[in-house]
Nucleic acid binder design. Structure first.
Lengths: 246, 246
DNA sequence: CGCATTCTTGATAGTTATCAACTTCTGTGG
DNA sequence: CCACAGAAGTTGATAACTATCAAGAATGCG
């Protein structure tokens, strides 16, 4: 619940009733093993998911065996919203670590909207946040050279871990090099070479499962990384005054 | 108003009061010339925009002069939502054609949420729709070869034009080859070669400003194009029964 | 301790980028 | 109605980044 609460607090001033609802979802959440497929692409879907703990990847598989990771989800985030707009999953989801995952049936959609408008609004604002990240990835995929793509991803992930707190310099990074390749649109071999180069320049320290960025400034400079898109406003417009001064 | 109404009808069963609100925004909309910058990146922003008519591009400029188009907006769509989550524009926007653009001040945000919940919900569902498109672009940028990227974009745009109706076989395509390149992460020269190839195979007919796909099936097959992501559900979950049978 | 991932690395191939003309449009003003 | 200027479209030759493929080393897990 810890991370769920931190996350939602970042996207709205929920009330006790709202946290009760979330807490309820969390209490009914279930554990999933690492590297487990939560759902495939093109499946009829009837529920959204709340990632209570662990990391998952949203991805698409291509005809030729290629894979593009569309987004990484961190603890407290929500995924599987396609059921709302399509009733079918447009992408697949797989756990990267062991996870704890809660479900929110779409049948509860009307109820959430009505009884928990602040949760609904938080979802909207989370969607905007996520969109900003996707845009940044698109810029990487479309216009940045391999080195910058990888640097950008590493910087973004450390920054996102910091966003909900609870991390020091060393951040968990449960991604294989193949995963990194599938995020950045590169091949595993080339990712490896890029990482080797970063290590040789003493910019990062990357072991299986954890990352330390030793020279954030240099890395950010080389990659053209600006963290602005990772710092959403705490309040939606018009509510700052209403709630801020109470 | 025509296109705005068609668009919003696709994303919610708005009431007369809702259309009144939109109509009001439309009536106060202003014309913009083609190739005009609506707003730049990193600007303080206090309003969302309703694209009453015309096409605009959302894009990012890079240090080295490169440009990545993040999204194309068609008539009836909304853009500039960053002001809600960031208060700052994370990307720039430029008109591709002459446009008619309405503004919705963020100060009206609370009012829209309260008095026009269906509009608010429509925005949410539009965001999901837009997300699906962005994901598809990410797959193109990351994993599809140049030829498929271009084919995919052309197919998507014809499909999107059809979504709100009012087009026959020939669709307007106010994009220069440079624009196509900036959408697909390619260079103008290579886009030109790809188009030449498509024309030589008699798959498309592309003149400045308009496109005809002469062999949709072949093109779609070669590019691995599936239009599923462009066909959102007409109703959000739980409302089908409530409204469908009236 | 042994298998199965994951990680590394080298050699080579292939898309796609670069760059620099040149040509074709399109719209404007005379 | 024609001439002109600037934008947009074409094309060729060459370079470069990144992919491929294969195989060996390292690491983690049961």
């Amino acid at each position: 619940m810890e991370m769920v609460e931190r996350r939602f607090r970042r996207f709205g001033r929920l009330g006790p009733r709202d946290f009760e609802f979330l807490s309820d979802v969390v209490s009914r959440s279930e554990p999933l093993a690492a590297r487990h497929t939560v759902f495939g692409e093109g499946r009829h879907c009837r529920q959204m998911y709340l990632l209570v703990d662990g990391w998952v990847a949203e991805y698409r598989l291509l005809f030729d065996g290629g894979r593009q990771i569309l987004q990484l989800r961190l603890p407290g985030e929500v995924f599987g919203l396609d059921c709302l707009g399509y009733g079918v999953s447009l992408h697949a989801v797989q756990t990267l670590t062991a996870c704890q995952v809660g479900a929110i049936p779409v049948d509860d959609y009307q109820r959430v909207k009505r009884d928990h408008p602040l949760i609904f609004e938080a979802l909207f604002r989370m969607a905007l946040f996520e969109r900003a990240i996707s845009h940044e990835w698109a810029v990487s995929l479309g216009r940045r050279p391999a080195w910058s793509r990888v640097a950008h991803l590493l910087l973004e992930l450390t920054e996102r871990c910091a966003l909900t707190g609870l991390v020091d310099e060393r951040v968990p990074l449960p991604l294989t090099q193949q995963d990194l390749a599938d995020c950045t649109g590169l091949t595993i071999g080339y990712v490896n070479r890029v990482l080797r180069d970063m290590r040789s320049r003493d910019l990062i320290e990357l072991t299986t499962g954890s990352l330390v960025i030793k020279d954030k400034d240099s890395l950010a400079r080389f990659a053209g990384f600006k963290a602005r898109y990772l710092n959403p406003l705490l309040d939606p417009p018009g509510e700052v005054d209403a709630n801020g001064g109470k």
